[in-house]
Design a protein around this nucleic acid. Structure first.
Lengths: 163, 163
DNA sequence: CAGTTTAAGGCAGCTTCATTGACTTAACAA
DNA sequence: TTGTTAAGTCAATGAAGCTGCCTTAAACTG
């Protein structure tokens, strides 16, 4: 009984490894041709999710150091994917957003992963999808859950603004 | 409608990022004290899952190059976590397995992630867990699914042998 | 206003984990 | 015997993270 339970958990470790790997791999193929890596993709993704976010917000979400982000962000800005604008309320901040070129690349990367996800969701069914989300959310710590809530709020706001 | 759907998928991207990060982070704390990294953990994990596997099996599962694995494996062997034994049927192979010390470390790493998973499974409920597994499996490509099947078969065999 | 804190960024050096390409050795298989 | 396969090695390289320390400009606070 305990044995079966442990096997289930070990299998979950396996599955997380393979699924995450294949999922990120989908975008890698696009990135490879552009001299960009996964770190650039992650930055693009979250800037797309919350346009106008500050550098420190992004740092907190990615959980890396300022110096690590710096390299990535410098490249993205130099190559015209991302722009910075001083904050209106706090002018020390440099608020990040995507250029048209950046948005186009982000969409291309998104679509690769979207196709994978859509196929998986379709194969697994809507009940399974709901469960998938519940477990993923429960696996995420408090900080991560706060970030997730911020993502959802930002998406709602974008939707309201564009409507 | 399409808009909502896309938001759901983007949120899934977010969640996979945060959940995977927190999940691997659980084991990192143990590894840090031992001068070992995630790459060592991955090797330990899969050797524990399929004791007696060949080097090329492990290469195929991890999806890295021989040289990358070589560094990791050399460390694990030198520090007494892993042993190699020539294959009985094909003596070119060096079959990998954990020492008692390796098994103890792997268990310690497993237990960190197990606790996280158990809490998440408990919070999410058994229906959600079933869905979680279905989606993860569907996200995994054919190669990965073959590896998953091999894991399950190896676990069944271990269980039968120890019974 | 003076002093402190904060947001962003830069410099230098380091570590981990991956890559490629070319090569060797030993064992298997035709 | 010849060719292939399993494993390992060398040298060089790249991607992505890290630490510690310092600067600038803006904001906050007494």
């Amino acid at each position: 009984m305990l044995f079966l339970r442990e096997e289930e958990l070990r299998l979950a470790q396996d599955m997380l490894f393979f699924a995450y790997r294949d999922f990120t791999h989908a975008a890698d193929e696009v990135l490879d041709g552009l001299e960009l890596g996964r770190a650039h993709h992650r930055a693009l993704h979250f800037i797309a999710r919350m346009p106008g976010m500050s550098v420190s917000d992004l740092l907190s979400i990615l959980g890396i150091t300022k110096q690590s982000l710096s390299r990535v962000l410098t490249t993205l800005i130099e190559q015209g994917y991302v722009v910075q604008a001083p904050g209106r309320v706090d002018r020390r901040q440099r608020l990040l957003s995507l250029t048209a070129k950046g948005a186009a690349l982000e969409r291309q990367l998104f679509e690769r992963q979207r196709d994978l996800l859509l196929r998986a969701y379709r194969d697994a069914g809507s009940t399974a999808v709901e469960g998938f989300r519940r477990v993923l959310r429960a696996l995420t710590d408090e900080t991560g859950q706060a970030h997730l809530a911020a993502m959802e709020a930002a998406a709602r706001e974008l939707r309201a603004r564009s409507a």
